[in-house]
Write a protein that binds this DNA or RNA. Structure first.
Lengths: 112, 112
DNA sequence: ACTTTATGTAAGATACGACTTACCGTAAGT
DNA sequence: ACTTACGGTAAGTCGTATCTTACATAAAGT
């Protein structure tokens, strides 16, 4: 806990295969913990702990409904990650073409 | 190492603040290890180990040039993550509006 | 040839993440 | 009121990530 930033927390949350399995099951819509836990290889408390991590990272939201708690993917949390990576991709591509252009100009002198 | 999938490896690589600091310094373009290490809080071997993790995840590429090794962000690796998150965001948003619509229809019956 | 610079790797200490079982509340059903 | 289903938390174990210092290797400079 107590991460330096939200990006680190989100990335760490999504780096675990078990947590991403939970995310996959929530793509279609909200589910209670019992439905999430049944069918997974780990125990139900483990699922609870993973849900905690995902919630703390801002990737999930909970809505208690009677006896159960429905977890759903938080679009805002995912959007923050998308924004970061999209900008990173932009910069990386710009740096890539700049390096390629620089390389081409260096080769022009030594070309036939 | 030896992760089940590339997404996990990339996410785990980007979840570490030190590694993301390295990524930030590479946004503008390739840099050798010595330039990367100077100015960072951790030791140079630690930087080498982080570069190894990022490279294994497919997020960096190396081009040896004389005495030094220039590391650069691999656009392809970042693109794979962008694709995954963009699709996840699409599904999450669709599920969100579906849940909102379902909720609205339930309220219609109890509204005056 | 020798020295310096650049960088990867080995070995070891420490910290932390993920899993388990056991336990404790809270809401529903009878 | 009692029982059952749901789900969060505590304590403990185990694996592994991250850091350090020390060593090894390769290219450049003198």
């Amino acid at each position: 806990m107590s991460y330096t930033d939200a990006i680190s927390a989100s990335m760490l949350a999504l780096s675990d295969p078990t947590r991403r399995a939970i995310i996959e099951r929530l793509r279609a819509g909200p589910l209670p913990v019992c439905d999430l836990a049944c069918g997974m290889t780990v125990s139900r408390p483990a699922v609870s702990q993973h849900l905690r991590v995902l919630s703390d990272a801002g990737l999930l939201v909970v809505t208690p409904l009677g006896n159960r708690r429905y977890y759903a993917i938080a679009p805002d949390g995912v959007a923050a990650l998308c924004l970061y990576l999209d900008q990173l991709w932009d910069d990386a591509l710009a740096a890539y073409v700049a390096a390629a252009k620089h390389q081409a100009e260096k080769n022009k002198g030594s070309a036939k």
